[in-house]
Design a protein around this nucleic acid. Structure first.
Length: 584
RNA sequence: CGGGCUGUGGCGCAGCUUGGUUAGCGCGCUUGACUGGGGGUCAAGAGGUCGCGGGUUCAAGUCCCGCCAGCCCGACCA
């Protein structure tokens, strides 16, 4: 293993732009982000816009090195695609219209419409169309490490959610689904290796395909309370899915014959809570109707059992809608419904009625009457109204039984550090086709594979720190060795020692600032390079330099003769290179 | 986009309630001395359109209105 980048001279701390901060700027909440700021790895320029300082850039380069190696192992060929795209290709894929304002659109000087890339499927599909003619040119796997810009409505959490970010994105081109499955599985494995090498424990979970489109997707989740996603996990059988798509075992439904529908008076019962009080029935005997509008202008009435929550992602999928929003009061009135007393009964064709699968087979539920102050008892799906769609549209809650093994499900907050999508022929409309062995023209089958580099760095910082600062895994540390040069004697001796380490292929940062010992030690711990070397009059008198590992702050330093230093460092780095955690 | 909070020197904050002369404190920065293995001490300094614009007032960092920016929660989102 190499512990060096292409650099051959030690980095002197006096070369670095940006000084360490004793206190974190206000607004930095998570410890990982605080240390990234305090250590001068990154600085914020604007909302969701970050400068990578020299130290941060080093980390980024180390992470990218791991990404490149692992992508190359699974047959990837690196390329670089433009950040600015003619709007045309996004119009041709249809995403120009389905994606909202997070896609930045602008005209160039000749008033030709352009966009800033928020991902690169369109470009790859366009390239595939022009470059691939024959089945003999497939399969292919290309990747890049490039900027993306997404005008997110709410950047937050430091580097966790930004607008401009670096992504390692890869794209597979295959003859058929079987070929895609093969490459997908291989890259799935490469992703696990990447996260292992970066020291980040992740869980692959089944996920929603979202704006990408396609038939299958996985996300690589880092479990942390600062995460914005929720994953559903089963300790019993290993079930793991994003809450957006997760399912739980369905409870049994009452075995009853349908009773005659009945209009009951329910004053001030415009919530399920109030309704159950007024009628003295449990929430699972009620059906609640939610009013949602789709981005393509359809009105939808979603019906779930009163004790369950709607999962909007599932509903959007059931409707084939890109986006959903709650209906406005005017829209609710327009379809003849009453908020708080909404009901699918009698709504007719004024709204698309989507009924949760459990509601569809539950007899004698209490539903609204579309009339203020009244509900309908003994509503039965099929008899009293006909749903347009029956599907699982409820959100899984912690504690519900696992659909696979019956064990209790739990939920955890998580950060999505990477994702992989089986796009299939979603982008074939851009002309990506090839001539098969049988002479038939066939659509190219695509896959898409992303890892957010900045987000990955943020997660590594979150995972690897103590109360004093960062503790970078050796694989991504800005430098392998941080040399503290104490006093004039230390400063004098440190140069040769650092150069020697560099000559041995180790990246070295030398603190040549002439600061007091305490300041140097504190900054070394904040910056978090794996090996700390102290050169001073005292260490030289003792026969060499003092070494200690950032990961073992309590262990007393060891004195090592200068000519043995490189092998000492190398040995300890190798030893720790295998320590990165693996989660499944 | 909705709700909340915050904008005062490079960083962290006080001052605002109850308007009143030269706007403070800690850290950092500069210079000097001492010190020299865990953010040292002393001394002397530099550095501020108090986010921006308007208003009220004899007088605004302080009160009012508008705007902008950032942070948090929600909506949204890979």
């Amino acid at each position: 293993m190499r512990w060096s980048s292409a650099y051959s001279l030690p980095m002197r701390m006096t070369q670095l732009l940006g000084s360490t901060l004793r206190a974190a700027p206000a607004g930095a909440e998570s410890p990982g982000y605080q240390f990234l700021l305090r250590g001068a790895f990154v600085r914020q320029l604007g909302q969701g816009l970050f400068s990578f300082m020299p130290l941060g850039t080093r980390v980024k380069q180390r992470v990218e090195h791991v990404l490149r190696q692992e992508m190359d192992v699974v047959g990837g060929a690196e390329l670089l695609l433009p950040l600015v795209h003619p709007a045309e290709i996004w119009k041709r894929s249809g995403r120009y219209d389905t994606i909202g304002p997070e896609l930045v659109r602008f005209d160039d000087r000749r008033t030709r419409p352009h966009v800033l890339a928020l991902t690169h499927e369109e470009v790859v599909a366009t390239l595939a169309a022009s470059e691939v003619q024959s089945w003999r040119q497939l399969p292919r796997f290309v990747y890049q490490i490039q900027l993306k810009f997404r005008d997110d409505p709410r950047p937050r959490g430091g580097l966790l959610r930004v607008r401009e970010f670096t992504m390692k994105d890869g794209y597979t081109l295959d003859r058929d689904e079987a070929g895609l499955d093969e490459q997908y599985a291989r890259i799935h494995g490469a992703y696990l290796e990447i996260f292992r090498r970066c020291g980040l424990p992740v869980i692959p979970v089944a996920a929603d395909v979202g704006m990408m489109g396609g038939r299958e997707a996985h996300e690589f989740m880092y479990l942390t309370p600062i995460g914005e996603d929720t994953v559903v996990l089963c300790d019993g059988c290993g079930y793991a899915q994003n809450r957006q798509v997760a399912t739980a075992a369905r409870p049994p439904v009452a075995e009853e014959d349908p009773l005659p529908i009945e209009r009951v008076e329910t004053p001030d019962a415009d919530t399920i809570d109030r309704l159950t009080q007024v009628l003295g029935i449990p929430a699972e005997r009620t059906a609640k109707a939610l009013f949602m509008a789709t981005s393509d202008g359809r009105m939808a009435l979603a019906v779930v059992r009163g004790d369950m929550q709607l999962n909007e992602t599932k509903l959007a999928g059931a409707l084939g809608a890109a986006e959903l929003r709650p209906m406005t009061p005017e829209e609710i009135e327009a379809i003849g419904a009453v908020a708080g007393y909404g009901s699918p009964v009698g709504i007719g064709t004024r709204a698309v009625v989507v009924v949760d699968e459990l509601v569809a087979r539950s007899p004698n539920l209490v539903a609204g009457a579309n009339e203020r102050g009244f509900h309908l008892a003994n509503v039965n799906v099929g008899r009293d109204f006909s749903p347009d769609v029956v599907a699982d549209i409820v959100a899984v809650e912690a504690g519900q039984p696992c659909a696979a093994c019956g064990g209790p499900l739990r939920t955890e907050r998580a950060v999505e550090t990477g994702n992989i999508f089986k796009l299939g022929t979603r982008y074939a409309g851009l002309g990506a086709s090839y001539l098969g062995e049988d002479g038939e023209e066939k659509p190219i089958v695509m896959g898409s594979y992303g890892i957010g580099v900045d987000r990955l760095i943020a997660c590594i910082a979150e995972e690897h720190h103590d109360e004093r600062g960062l503790v970078w895994p050796a694989s991504v540390a800005p430098f392998a060795v941080h040399v503290c040069a104490l006093g004039d004697e230390g400063l004098e001796a440190a140069g040769a020692i650092a150069e020697n380490l560099e000559g041995e292929g180790l990246d070295v940062l030398v603190d040549d600032r002439g600061e007091r010992a305490g300041v140097q030690f504190a900054d070394a711990e904040l910056i978090g390079c794996p090996v700390q070397v102290t050169v001073s009059k005292r260490s030289l008198a003792a026969g060499g330099v003092e070494v200690k590992l950032r990961s073992e702050p309590e262990r007393p330093p060891e004195v090592v003769p200068p000519d043995e230093l490189a092998s000492w460092v190398r040995g300890h780095l190798e030893e720790r290179a295998t320590e990165a955690p693996v989660v499944r």
